[in-house]
Design a protein around this nucleic acid. Structure first.
Lengths: 113, 113
DNA sequence: TTCATAGTTCGGGAATATTGAACTATTGAA
DNA sequence: TTCAATAGTTCAATATTCCCGAACTATGAA
């Protein structure tokens, strides 16, 4: 019998190449106040678990939060890796900036409270 | 009997004050390839009727086009005025730039084919 | 008038988003 | 080892939004 237990250690998430991300998909991911808040928090931190990346105001259900992070992942904005039982999210800042120069800067600058 | 015919000459569209437009609404309006194409055309023209503002590739049904323009209007991106039987659309560039400095520039610069 | 043009609005089906509930995986403690 | 707690995903049902054909309104021209 083959030992298949290793598959549980396979990477859980797929991350797109930035060159495959169209502008409208990136903008769509950022066109939501909760996701904007998440990106803003990640921009100011080295890496955050899902619950730590969540916007502090407006409590978001965890399934909703998970979906928001999936949307950001699909747009090439964040990379998620497992660490213990937490999923650590990191902003793919350099790659995103190379793909869309100046875009994230402009958006974050305009996201001030 | 009151003469009510004048109401047909009332302004047809309402345009938001830019300070009332939240960032996520503006991004949402721009997070669509057809609407991006419309904005790009308006950025390069003084004023365009709805059908002239339509993206040249991908033919868009006129009701869909009308809704796209309504979305852009609600986000403070365009101003629409009637001229004869055409509706002339103008990009509210200065106002939008004052509200969201650098945002439209960054988006249009990244919208190049 | 009447016709054609330029668009808006309405309504229903298609596509997306939200979220409670069930589930998986990991850690720590008994 | 087991058991419970934690951190998150996935599923499925509901809610919302979007798309677009059809009907409608307004204007200009014949």
């Amino acid at each position: 019998m083959m030992n298949l237990s290793y598959i549980h250690r396979m990477p859980r998430f797929t991350h797109p190449r930035l060159e495959d991300v169209p502008l409208d998909l990136a903008l769509h991911a950022l066109a939501d106040s909760n996701r904007l808040a998440i990106v803003a928090r990640l921009a100011a931190a080295a890496g955050l678990s899902c619950s730590n990346a969540a916007p502090c105001d407006a409590p978001v259900p965890k399934s909703t939060l998970s979906n928001h992070l999936k949307t950001l992942r699909a747009a090439g904005l964040i990379e998620t890796t497992q660490s213990g039982r937490e999923m650590i999210n990191v902003l793919r800042r350099d790659e995103f900036d190379r793909r869309f120069p100046g875009l994230l800067d402009a958006i974050l600058a305009n996201n001030a409270v």
